[in-house]
Amino acid sequence: MFYPNSPQTSPQLTQIPYGQQYAMMQRQIQQPYHPFATTEPQARLYPYHYQGPIQQEQGGFITQQSTAASPQYVQMRVTPVDQSIMSGYPNQTANGSSSSSFNYNIHPQQQQQQQQQQQQLRHHAMPVGSVPLQDDRYRKQLIVNYLAPDVTSTDLHELFSRFGELDGARIIYDKQTNMSKGYGFVYFCHAEDAKEAVERMSGYEFHGKWLKVGYSTNPLNIVPSNSSPYVHAGSRGAAG
C-alpha cells in the first residue's frame, strides 16, 4: 500500500523548493479562506456584503464582478436614472436638479381664491374633541361614552347635575331594538360647569363602566337656548 506522503511516492527534499517541504498533501497545500485577509477597505468593513468592485458596462447597466450573493443577503441591482424623465418638472436647472418651490404660472386672482378656499376649509374642519370658538353652545354640550346598558337618562342627569344647572341629558337608544347604544349627551347651562365635568368625570366608574367624557361637536345635538329642557323620564321611549 502506498500513501500520498510515503517515501516511495514523495520526491527528495532537495528537489522541493524551500517553504513547501512540509506541504505535501493536497489539504495542506490548499490555503484556508480568510474573509478579512484583503487589501480593499470595503471588504474589511463589510465582509458579507462586499463582492468586489463595481464596473460600468456598455448599455448603462451596473453589474458586479463577483458571483451571486448568499441567500441570506439580498443584493440590489441599481440602474442609472434617465434624465429625460425629470425634464417635465418646473424650475429645473441645466444640471438636472430642481428647486423646492414650484411655479405653475397661476393667475394671481386664482391663487388668492385657492388660498381663501383653504382658509375656509381649515375654519370649518374641526378635529374630534375640539371646541370651536365662534359658538358658545359647543362648550356646553358633552358626550358621555361607555355607558352601561342599564343607565337611563334620569341617572345621567343626576350624575352630572352636581356640577351645575343642566339644560338636559339623554341616552341614545336603538330604534329597532330599543336598547341603549352605550353613549349619551349632557347639556349644561354654563360653559364653566361643562369644563369642570369634563375634567372630573373622564375615567369615572359608573355602573361598572369607566366613562369617557368630552365635548360634543355635532351641531345636530345642540340644544337651542330658547327651547324647553328635555324630559328626564326613566322610560326608554321618552328618553330616546
Rank of each mutant, 00 (worst) to 15 (best):
F2K: 01
P4L: 09
P4W: 07
N5S: 12
S6I: 13
P7Q: 04
Q8P: 07
S10E: 08
P11Y: 12
Q12K: 08
Q15G: 04
I16Q: 05
Y18H: 10
Y22C: 14
A23H: 00
M25T: 11
Q26M: 14
R27H: 11
Q28P: 10
I29P: 09
I29T: 12
I29E: 13
Y33N: 04
Y33M: 15
P35N: 09
A37V: 11
T38F: 08
T39W: 00
Q42M: 15
Q42D: 12
Q42A: 14
A43L: 09
L45V: 12
Y46R: 06
Y50C: 14
Y50M: 00
G52H: 00
P53S: 09
P53D: 08
P53I: 14
Q55P: 05
Q56R: 03
Q56P: 00
E57G: 07
Q58L: 09
Q58T: 14
G60T: 09
Q64G: 09
Q65N: 03
S66E: 12
S66G: 08
T67G: 02
S70R: 08
Q72N: 01
Y73K: 11
V74S: 07
V74H: 07
T79D: 05
V81I: 08
V81G: 07
I85P: 03
I85K: 14
I85D: 05
M86K: 01
M86V: 08
M86Q: 12
Y89M: 15
Y89G: 05
Y89L: 10
P90K: 08
P90T: 12
G96I: 10
S99A: 14
S100C: 06
F102H: 14
Y104D: 00
N105H: 10
I106S: 04
H107N: 12
Q110K: 11
Q110F: 00
Q112P: 08
Q112R: 08
Q113H: 01
Q115M: 10
Q115L: 10
Q115Y: 10
Q116W: 01
Q117F: 10
Q117K: 11
Q118D: 05
Q118Y: 08
Q119D: 00
M126S: 07
P127H: 02
P127T: 07
S130I: 07
S130Q: 11
L133G: 04
L133K: 10
R139S: 11
K140W: 02
K140C: 00
L142Q: 03
L142I: 09
Y146I: 01
A148N: 08
P149D: 14
V151G: 11
V151S: 04
T154L: 05
D155A: 08
H157S: 06
F160E: 09
S161V: 10
R162Q: 07
G164Q: 11
L166R: 06
D167K: 02
G168L: 04
A169D: 13
A169N: 03
R170D: 00
I172T: 03
Y173E: 00
D174T: 08
Q176F: 04
Q176G: 06
T177D: 01
M179T: 14
S180W: 05
S180A: 10
G182T: 13
G182Y: 12
Y183L: 00
V186Q: 11
Y187I: 01
F188L: 06
F188W: 15
C189P: 02
A191P: 02
A194Y: 13
A197E: 05
R200P: 09
Y204L: 09
E205S: 08
K209T: 03
W210Q: 01
W210H: 12
K212Q: 08
V213F: 06
Y215L: 00
S216C: 01
T217Y: 09
N218I: 09
L220E: 06
N221R: 10
I222A: 03
P224W: 14
P224R: 06
P224D: 03
S227C: 12
S227R: 07
S228T: 04
Y230G: 12
V231E: 09
H232N: 12
A233W: 00
S235G: 07
R236P: 05
G237S: 08
A238Y: 14
A239W: 00
A239R: 03
G240K: 11
